[in-house]
Design a binder for these strands. Structure first.
Lengths: 356, 356
DNA sequence: ACGTGCAATGACAGCGCTGTCAACAGATTC
DNA sequence: GAATCTGTTGACAGCGCTGTCATTGCACGT
C-alpha cells in the first residue's frame, strides 16, 4: 500500500541504509557482493528513491527546470496555438533526462516583472534544480543571468546572442543562417530583396537582420528601407509587413521573413495583391514551422535543430551535476539547414524598373 | 548567498517556524497581526519554501506530473517535429499551476513496457505528485489506471474513451465531432465519403470511426469498404491511404481523415493523382494542426480545446489536493468546433457512376 | 608478532519543512 | 472566583534520504 523506502530495501538486503544509498548512487568502494544484494532487493521491491528526500538531504535534486517566457506562453495560450519551439526543446531535454534519471520541470518566467530578480532567486531556492535551461528570450535576460550567477546555479542558455561568453550556451549561428538564406536568394538571381524583421524582444531578430544586411552588402546589393519592415513574429504582422513592402514601387522580387509565421503572412499579402508565388515574388522564412511543408506553396526556410540543442543543454547540466570538477565544454554550436522548397524561384525577367 | 529558510523568516518576524508555516499555507486560526508580521518578513527576505522539504514533510508535493507516451515522444524526437497536442496541453496546465503555486513535471511512460505497473508505482513513490494528468494514449491504459488506483493517487484522464466512469476525466466527444463533420460533408451534398482511420493505439480512433459510420447511416449513405483505409495518424500513412482510396473506381467525392497530418497526406495523394481540391475531392481533417490554416488549400477540420482540457484537469487535481473531502465534479466535457475552410466544397455534378 | 594503511561498511546527524499535541491566554459560564 | 471552553501559538518529532566521520576487517611491511 504505502511507498517503499530505503529502510525496506536495507532490511531486505540485510545491510545498512547507507550501503543502499551508495549502491543506488553508483558510489565507489562497494563490493560486488553487496552491490548485487542491494540491487536484487531494490529490484524485487520496485524501489525508487524519493525525489523530495534526496533533494532535501543531498546536493542534487535530480530536477532540471526549463525557463520559459511567461508573456510568450500566455500569448500562445490565449490564441489556442501550441509552441513548436518549446515542444521540440522539451522533446530533446526529456530524452536526455530519461537516460539520466532526471526530471524535467517547466517554469514560467515573466522577464518584464519588476521583481524579476527576486522571482528567480525564490524559484531557485524553492526548487534547487540541478540546472536550468533558459529558452529565448529568457536566455538573453541579464537580470536572470546575474541572479543565477549570484547563487552559483548552473544554467544553459539556448539560442542566446548577447554576452556570448557568459554561462553555458548552446546556439545556432542566426547571423550566418540569415546570411546563407540571403545568399541563396541572391544566387538564384534576386537583386531586389525585402526583409521582415522579427520582434525586438529576441536577440535573434537582430542577428538575422544583420546577417541579411551582411549578405546583401557582400553581394553588392542595396537594402532599400521601403523593403524592410518591422514585424513581431506573428502572422498578422507578417501580413501587414508584406502588404507594405509589396505595395512599394518598385517592389522586391523576393522577401525574406525572420520567421515562418510572418512568411505565411507575406504569402497571404502577396495573394491579396494578386501576386503569384514564386512566379512574381519569392518568399523565404525561418524556423521550419510545422506548417511549412504543407503551406501553399511549401515554404523555403531555415531549420533549427531545437531538440538537439536542448539535448546538449541537458547533457551539460547533468554532466556538471554528476561531477562539477571535471570541466566540460561550456559552449556548443549546432548546425542549421537551409531548406529550399517551392516558395522561392529565380526572379521574373527584369522589366519593371530600369538599370543602365 | 545561501538560500533563505523558514528559520530566517521566523526569526525576522519574531515567531515560531510553525506560525510561519501556518501563515504561508493559509491555515486558519492565525491573528491578523501575526499574519502581517510573517508576510512582511517573508516578503522582505524573498522567501519561498523548499519544494523538497515540503514534499518530504507534508502530504502535498505541489507537483503535478503529466504522463506522456514515450513511444510517441521518441517518434517525434526522431523526426524533429514538435508535438502540438502536448504543447497545448502544457500551456493550459502551466497557466493553472502558476496560479496555484504548483509545478508541472513532464514524465515519459512506455505503455508497451512489460514492467509498466512497476514503473508507474516507482514513479509515483519517487515523485509523490499531487496528481497526474494522463494524456492519450496513457489515459486509456488499464494497467496505469489500476496501478494508480492501488496507490490512491489522483489522476485526470485527458481525452479518454474507455471505462468512462473510472477516475477523473476531461474529454471531448470524438464520436459526435466525427458525426458532425460527416454530417457537414453530407449537407454539402456529398454522398460518397471515404474515411481514413487513425492509429488503433488511440481510443479516439475508434470513436471517430464510429461517429463517421453513425452519421453515414443516419443520412442513408453507404460506407464502402474500399473507401475506408487504416492509417496511423502520420503523413505518410495518409498519403498511402489517400492513394488507395482515390484509386478506387468509383472514387468518393470527399475523404474525412481522422487527423490533420493524414489529411495533408490525402491532399498530397490527390495532387499526385491530378485531382483538384476541393473541386474534384473534398478533404476534411481532425485536430486543427498548426499547418491547417497555411496548407494549400486551408484545411477543414475539428478543433479540440486541448489547453482548456488541461486547465480543467489541473484545476481538478489542485482542488482535490487542497481539500480532498469536498467532492468536486470528476468528469468534464469540453466543446469542439467544426471549422470549415477551403478544402471542402460541394461535390462535382454526378457524372461518373449512375444512380437511377 | 605487531603496527600501518586502506578499502568497505555503518552510526548518526541533519536537510527544511509539516503534523501532532501540549501550553497558554482570554472569554464565558455558573 | 473557579471551572470550562475556544482560539492562538509553540515545542518537538520525524518525513527519507545523503554527508561526515568512526569503525571494522584485512593485506601488507617489518
Amino acid at each position: 500500500m504505502s511507498a517503499v523506502t530505503i529502510y525496506d530495501v536495507a532490511e531486505r538486503a540485510g545491510v545498512s541504509i547507507k550501503s543502499v544509498s551508495r549502491v543506488l548512487n553508483g558510489k565507489p568502494n562497494v563490493t560486488e557482493a553487496l552491490r548485487r544484494k542491494v540491487e536484487e532487493a531494490a529490484e524485487s521491491l520496485g524501489y525508487r528513491p524519493s525525489l523530495s528526500a534526496r533533494g532535501l538531504a543531498g546536493a542534487r535534486s535530480y530536477i532540471i527546470a526549463a525557463l520559459v517566457d511567461a508573456e510568450l506562453t500566455i500569448e500562445h495560450w490565449r490564441s489556442g496555438r501550441g509552441n513548436d519551439y518549446l515542444s521540440r526543446m522539451e522533446l530533446g531535454a526529456l530524452m536526455e533526462c530519461r537516460q539520466a534519471g532526471c526530471h524535467l520541470l517547466i517554469e514560467l518566467v515573466d522577464v518584464a516583472s519588476d521583481t524579476l530578480k527576486r522571482d528567480i532567486l525564490a524559484m531557485v531556492s524553492s526548487l534547487r534544480p540541478d540546472g536550468l535551461i533558459l529558452t529565448p528570450p529568457v536566455s538573453d535576460c541579464a537580470v536572470v543571468l546575474s541572479a543565477l550567477d549570484s547563487r552559483g546555479v548552473a544554467y544553459v542558455r539556448l539560442g542566446a546572442e548577447t554576452e556570448p561568453s557568459r554561462g553555458r550556451r548552446v546556439y545556432m549561428d542566426d547571423h550566418r543562417a540569415a546570411y546563407d538564406m540571403t545568399a541563396y536568394l541572391a544566387r538564384m538571381g534576386h537583386r531586389d530583396i525585402g526583409f521582415v524583421v522579427g520582434s525586438p524582444r529576441y536577440a535573434a531578430s537582430r542577428a538575422r537582420r544583420e546577417g541579411f544586411e551582411a549578405a546583401m552588402a557582400q553581394h553588392g546589393l542595396q537594402v532599400r528601407p521601403e523593403w524592410v519592415a518591422d514585424g513581431d513574429f506573428t502572422f498578422p504582422s507578417g501580413l501587414d509587413c508584406g502588404l507594405r513592402i509589396l505595395s512599394a514601387d518598385p517592389r522586391p522580387t523576393a522577401i525574406f521573413a525572420s520567421n515562418d509565421d510572418m512568411a505565411f503572412g507575406v504569402i497571404q499579402a502577396a495573394r491579396r495583391l494578386g501576386l503569384s508565388i514564386p512566379g512574381e515574388v519569392s518568399v523565404a522564412g525561418f524556423d521550419d514551422a510545422p506548417g511549412a511543408q504543407f503551406s501553399a506553396p511549401q515554404l523555403t526556410t531555415v531549420r533549427q535543430p531545437v531538440a538537439e540543442m536542448a539535448e546538449a543543454a541537458a547533457r551539460m547540466i547533468i554532466a556538471h551535476a554528476q561531477d562539477s570538477t571535471h570541466e566540460a565544454p561550456r559552449v556548443r554550436e549546432v548546425a542549421y539547414v537551409v531548406i529550399g522548397r517551392e516558395s522561392t524561384a529565380p526572379p521574373p525577367p527584369p522589366a519593371r524598373h530600369d538599370r543602365p
